[in-house]
Design a protein around this nucleic acid. Structure first.
Length: 215
DNA sequence: AGCCAGGGTCTAA
DNA sequence: TTAGACCATGGC
């Protein structure tokens, strides 16, 4: 079976280096909430509805109904509007100063984020990685699906994390690129089974594809 | 026309 | 502790 490093190299060669999560830190955190169980195109449409650039202070000062209206295209607007303000209030505990946040150990930050209503493991990890440059490997629907199709036998997220991080430099830049590459790949191929014929990873997935055909 | 997106929370058993 | 309902909207 393909190794994690092999997969990373293959994806990098295919799609090139990532452009990272778009927007400044605050935009990044807000869009991380907006994209929960939502297509990225909806997030883009929501961002276009805001009358100005996002800052933490602006988002905190917005009446909740107004914030809900801006993010409407993303769905789950009641919950997400509340969560966005909750995250910004959390950022306020550090005086909206990224350097202060980054000075805190990764695991403690993770616990703080997980304690916020509306922030689960994936969103917490994405914020740690892309907003505060902590070396966290992010697991999401795409990475789980792809690992399974490669023939991975990991049953839990802990096991999946071990597989993905083995043999790969433990650096936020690498994890960020890797996560982004997995998404780029997943959006193009793994969602649509017929496209497997032209997928750059088709040999690596061959066994799984065969199993599906025969069932 | 229905299915599902880069999830998370709450509740019931 | 785990499965299932629910949250809302838009793209395809």
């Amino acid at each position: 079976m393909l190794t994690s490093k092999g997969l990373y190299d293959r994806l990098l060669a295919t799609y090139g280096p990532s452009e990272g999560w778009p927007g400044n830190r605050v935009t990044m955190m807000a869009t991380a909430v907006m994209v929960q169980n939502t297509a990225w195109t909806a997030v883009v449409r929501a961002m276009e509805r805001f009358p100005q650039e996002l800052t933490a202070q602006y988002l905190l000062a917005l009446p909740i109904e107004e914030l809900m209206d801006y993010i409407r295209p993303c769905g789950f607007m009641r919950r997400k509007a509340e969560t966005i303000q909750t995250v910004m209030a959390w950022y306020g505990r550090y005086d909206f100063d990224a350097a202060q946040v980054e000075a805190v150990p990764q695991e403690r930050l993770r616990q703080e984020l997980l304690a916020l209503k509306g922030i689960g493991e994936e969103t917490a990890d994405v914020i740690l990685l892309y907003a505060f440059h902590k070396p966290v490997f992010v697991l999401d629907a795409y990475t789980r699906r792809l690992l399974s199709r490669l023939g991975g036998t990991a049953q839990t997220d802990a096991e999946r994390r071990v597989w993905f991080t083995a043999g790969v430099p433990e650096a936020d830049k690498v994890y960020a690129d890797y996560h982004w590459l997995l998404l780029e790949h997943g959006k193009r191929y793994c969602k649509k089974r017929p496209l497997c014929e032209e997928c750059p990873l088709r040999e690596a997935c061959a066994q799984k594809i065969q199993e599906e055909k025969s069932s």
